[in-house]
Amino acid sequence: LSWGKGLGCNFVMNSCKEWIQANNGRGRSIHPFCSKVKQDPLQTECTDDRNSVALCNLIRHDYELPKKYQNFDSINHVKSGEEGYYGGSVSLADHCPYIQEFTWRSKNVIVRGSHCRFVENNPKPEKNFALESYGIGSKCFDHSDFMWEERSCHQTREWQHWGSGCYKYECSDGRLHILVANYTYTCFYPGQTLSIRINANDWLHRGAIICPPCHELCGEVFAERGEECRMREEAPPANKYPRDTLTCAACASAAFCRILLFVAIIAAFSWRRTHVFIG
């Protein structure tokens, strides 16, 4: 059981409110508890072991919770004085909000799960906006605070849920490397934002992935090889990472654009001569 593993006596003996307040005050993660209200648009997280995309089960109840189950003095984007209506959806957990795996549903039919290990949880290609890859060897990585975007030559669309996703990764040369589509992105320090711009399935996918600490995923792997994670290092400039561009048929190359411009000038000149002659 990984729940609470290694979190110490304070986690076991104190209330979830005390745990949340203490860790917030120290600038630490409050996991396995959470404070993101479950609402549209959905914003997912990762479980502590990074085995699954997860949701915080913090919801607004129709009634004010008993005082002993009110775990927040303030909640982001919640009006002051209404915190008492918010708590975890599971009463057996004293309404402590925590992150948990979930299933994607369509018309009350289960479409897929959120555990990274199972290949059947891969989104359909036309709905894989964040270019996720589920299967053996995949782990959950956090996205940035901005929605992922898809662009074509005629349309731009944003997906109404984001926050985390499952991706393959490698541990080599003392670094964590995250694999997205056919590209490899190297992490140089925890918290580094990897900007993603990849053409796939006739769309330019734009988003970002946040690098976790190297030791979380590669510590044991490197230890078995007699290696270790390298020290924090300044990342290369953004142009050193893969950055696809959107090329539309109307102007597929600079040479083609010049030809189009030349034809347009000739057409305009011919029209002008004809117009003057008729006049």
Rank of each mutant, 00 (worst) to 15 (best):
F11R: 02
C116L: 07
D173F: 07
C229S: 04
I210V: 15
F33P: 08
A235F: 00
F129L: 12
E220P: 05
F33L: 10
Q155R: 15
G87P: 06
Y167R: 04
R258V: 05
S80N: 13
S2F: 13
C34G: 06
M13D: 07
V111S: 09
G137D: 09
G8S: 03
T103L: 09
F129T: 07
P123T: 00
L204H: 10
Q70A: 08
G84K: 11
I209E: 12
K107L: 10
R206P: 00
W3D: 07
N121Y: 09
A250T: 12
L58P: 01
K38E: 13
I30L: 03
S195K: 08
P190F: 06
W148G: 02
Y241G: 02
L194V: 10
L246G: 09
G135T: 03
R50N: 05
N199W: 14
A264K: 03
H31N: 07
F262C: 12
H115D: 13
D173V: 01
R112K: 08
F262V: 11
A208E: 12
R112V: 09
V263N: 08
F256M: 11
G219E: 07
C166Q: 10
I278Y: 15
A250K: 12
G174K: 10
D94S: 14
V119D: 12
G219A: 04
F188I: 06
D62M: 06
F33C: 01
M147C: 01
G4A: 03
T247K: 14
S89G: 01
N122M: 07
T245R: 10
G207T: 09
R272V: 03
Y85A: 12
L55Q: 05
K67L: 10
C34P: 09
H61A: 00
W104T: 02
L260P: 00
